[in-house]
Nucleic acid binder design. Sequence first.
DNA 1: TTGTAAGCGTTATCAG
DNA 2: CTGATAACGCTTACAA
Lengths: 348, 348
Amino acid sequence: MTRDPHGPDSGRSAVRRPASIKDVAAAARVSPTTVSHVLSGNRPVNEQTAARVRSVVNRLGYVPASLARSLQAGSTSVIGLMIPDISNTFFAELAKGAEDAAHDLGYGVILCNTEFDAEREDRYLGMIRSRFIDGMVYASGSPPSRRRLEALMGRFPIALADEEVDGLEGALIATADHEAGGRLVGEHLRELGHRRALMVTGPRELKSGVARAGGFVKAFQGHVTERVGDFKEHSGYRLVSELLAAGDPDFTAVFAANDLMAFGALTALREAGLSVPGDVSVVGFDDIRAASLAHPSLTTVHQPAYDVGRTATAQLLQYVSRGEVPPASRHTLPVELKVRASTAPPAR
Amino acid sequence: MTRDPHGPDSGRSAVRRPASIKDVAAAARVSPTTVSHVLSGNRPVNEQTAARVRSVVNRLGYVPASLARSLQAGSTSVIGLMIPDISNTFFAELAKGAEDAAHDLGYGVILCNTEFDAEREDRYLGMIRSRFIDGMVYASGSPPSRRRLEALMGRFPIALADEEVDGLEGALIATADHEAGGRLVGEHLRELGHRRALMVTGPRELKSGVARAGGFVKAFQGHVTERVGDFKEHSGYRLVSELLAAGDPDFTAVFAANDLMAFGALTALREAGLSVPGDVSVVGFDDIRAASLAHPSLTTVHQPAYDVGRTATAQLLQYVSRGEVPPASRHTLPVELKVRASTAPPAR
DNA sequence: TTGTAAGCGTTATCAG
DNA sequence: CTGATAACGCTTACAA
């Protein structure tokens, strides 16, 4: 028994097959071609005919299947957004910017939350090869996997957001000015009178963290102890705790390469009975929402996460929407130092 | 110099048309059918032939076009996730749960960030009618628009997350136990000795807020002044400020229907020179990340945002993946009172 | 074990 | 101004 969408009662519980362009054409006694053109406006149609078609469209509740349209057009108007953790406010802001830019151009965004999991990332990258998405905004925040590089090097439409990737100098990339951020922190602490600092960096593979550290060291011009963290709160806590436990810490200020680790540092210092900023100053990076609410409120570098996401996406779509391959280009967005309560001149 | 895809030699730099199943078939001297079956395993294929096909697949870098597959199958393995603001950590957590559940079942998630914009919401709801997505997890957090209701009532596969919608008692819904949360707060404040409270609610159209208030009033059994906010920080600030400015506030505790408004209240109290919790206790709802970092840290009701997203999605997909319409059902997830530093017995 | 052909629902091309 | 036909790239009866 076949289903007839016009049937008197195709039955309440069953899922009715939605009307197709053919159903509309038949009911309006025109060809599918004409229906298509009435809806798209791609060529003039007699007003009488058009009216008849439109009325049938309404009556049947016809909505064109975008899938078929995509197949025919060769593009889906959907892009992927690859990020490691959507519950991190930095990436959430970035996602918002990406979604906004995509929405402006009529694109949808598939959320690819990797949890730093390479396998998961690979699966999502596969979507681009299966042509389910027209491009990818990539902000994975972890070192490149083999398949990832393959996809990128294969000149698939990908834009890097916030983070460069080694060996991909020829990509489209939008990023905050990490080095300038580091420099601002270095200058700030130096001006306050600090001469010995602890820098908690991110993993060496991540260029952004390296740039932050580089800018800082250059501007601080004092003694810097470096420790490598992983951008998670606990590593900030652990590294600072260890140094304090080892006795006589050789720093009056801590610069963590992101706010999360700065929070960890704050906790470690508090537990050690040190006051912030009385005994030790602390600076973060990112300016996530919690930074201004923490106690003491955190001096940090504001990253324009929203703009990074928005810029990367807008740039990508500018080319993708014309069927072109995005060329190499770099968009560096300005950062800003937010001086709050966690920094002060060193004691003595 | 422009790129001309039709040029005499679109050669090396141009975008090569990706290999299709026909290309593979031709190169392997078999029919497309066989290629399909080698890849899907849907019917046995001679091992020799299969090997030959696989080798060609590798050589050509063939990846099946999921679009065509979807068209044929009548489903995309993609769902939509409608939320008002991805940069709100509550919704970000919810999104994470949804993405996780979807990923487990091989589904992709299209991020539909509405910014509380009805037009934007409508556009996204259109996707479900155009069959680009197989279902929708709906957590919009604003009163229903006409089209929304239409979509929902039309028995499209939609699951409500976190928020009921009026007139949709027959939907699949996963939500935190808002009423129990309100009750916990009421009991807590009562036990501390408070007898007069200010309750800052959300908009009346949102059932979750109403349930929170209801539970609270019932359990508190004292005098409650109610003011209607909009779930944004500023409204908490404004409402409390106004009451304080009017002189002699008739409360020793404030219960805000979400953390954001509680933060606003905190600011208003501080500006009025009142100490928290010394003069006034403050309680929020949601337990967003900033709640534990604020000063004083905020007593609040922890909502299992991740679980709400995960449950709604898992439930939805359980039916959608079988082509069934999700039946009415309700999943109420437990909440937990987090007692922190913003509550204490009333002065005197 | 394999192939042919008919879809899935559109839109572009070409003809009238 | 309108229509028939052929794609788009895949899966799946039905046949051999």
